[in-house]
Design a protein around this nucleic acid. Structure first.
Length: 281
DNA sequence: AGTAAACTCCGGAAGC
DNA sequence: TGCTTCCGGAGTTTAC
């Protein structure tokens, strides 16, 4: 499922392929994937030059000339693929935009439709609202700001998953980062020492950077902008490895529910501190 | 107010 | 074959 590394992979590929190109014809076959009024898209986009493709949180953002931003949220099953215009169109393709002076087009496909598209113009860019609040970028946040973000009475897993606090971490990279840091997912965030908090931030960064190098994780649906699978799933140490041995200590990986989500961890490498258990009573 | 849990959207996969 | 159940990102609602 697309989290930060997958969105980053797609954004970098699209930046290479599309920056400087001009958008052409727009075909929108499901208007309900567009937030706000979908009707102007066909008029607004053709002829616009793509100045930059970037990422914020789990979103891919096209900056177009004229101050327009086209924002894609991929949800669980969203795909953004550049391919020849006459390639067979896969099921659940909702938006197609041709790229001028090439025989290619950009396609947005999303089976479950948890994703969406926003078109922000200078007049409708009303502060944050259409996209909701977005938290700190884990690859850029300072250790101090990160520790402040952790100073709340919540389970660390729930806090890391909260997009309004830290942006871009989903189930996979939360579990992998907590394992790399040796922190139990149910630990109360504000009981972590600053050493452990710093260690967690380093683990998050290491995990995300490595996942980006491997083009993200493909469990089921994720594909990059060229339609290819990622390969970081081969390096997962806990995620979806229930019952398999921990790669550092051979203890059987356990699965529990945290923040209502499947959560995988090693009960030996990720012990709950006594401090945390006391605070639960 | 801050936190947590339940419910909602949806289609694919797994189990019976 | 066909049914039911589960899953989940994120927004919303409800409950403590």
């Amino acid at each position: 499922m697309p989290e930060l590394p997958e969105a980053e992979t797609i954004a970098r590929q699209l930046q290479r392929q599309l920056a400087g190109r001009t958008l052409g014809r727009v075909r929108l076959t499901r208007t309900d994937i567009v937030h706000g009024d979908p009707r102007p898209l066909g008029k607004l986009l053709p002829g616009r030059r793509v100045t930059q493709v970037s990422r914020r949180a789990k979103r891919v953002i096209f900056s177009l000339d004229g101050g327009i931003e086209l924002v894609f949220r991929l949800g669980m099953t969203g795909r953004m693929i550049v391919c020849p215009t006459d390639d067979p169109v896969e099921k659940h393709t909702h938006l197609r935009i041709t790229i001028d002076a090439t025989s290619n087009e950009l396609r947005f496909c999303d089976a479950r439709r948890f994703g969406g598209v926003w078109c922000l113009t200078e007049s409708n860019r009303f502060i944050g609202k259409p996209l909701g609040e977005v938290g700190l970028e884990p690859l850029e946040v300072t250790p101090t700001a990160f520790r402040v973000a952790l100073s709340r009475r919540r389970q660390i897993k729930a806090l890391l998953m909260d997009q309004t606090v830290i942006a871009g971490l989903g189930n996979i990279y939360c579990d992998e980062s907590l394992h790399a840091a040796g922190i139990h997912p149910l630990t109360q965030a504000d009981t972590l020492s600053s050493d452990r908090a710093n260690r967690l931030l380093r683990a998050i960064r290491m995990t995300l950077r490595k996942a980006i190098r491997f083009n993200g994780s493909t469990l089921m649906d994720y594909r990059d902008a060229d339609g290819r699978e990622g390969s970081f799933q081969k390096l997962h140490r806990v995620y979806q490895r229930r019952g398999e041995p921990c790669c550092t200590c051979r203890t059987s990986i356990r699965r529990i529910l945290a923040a209502g989500r499947s959560t995988f961890f090693c009960p030996t490498c990720q012990r709950k501190s006594r401090n945390t258990e006391k605070s639960k009573l």
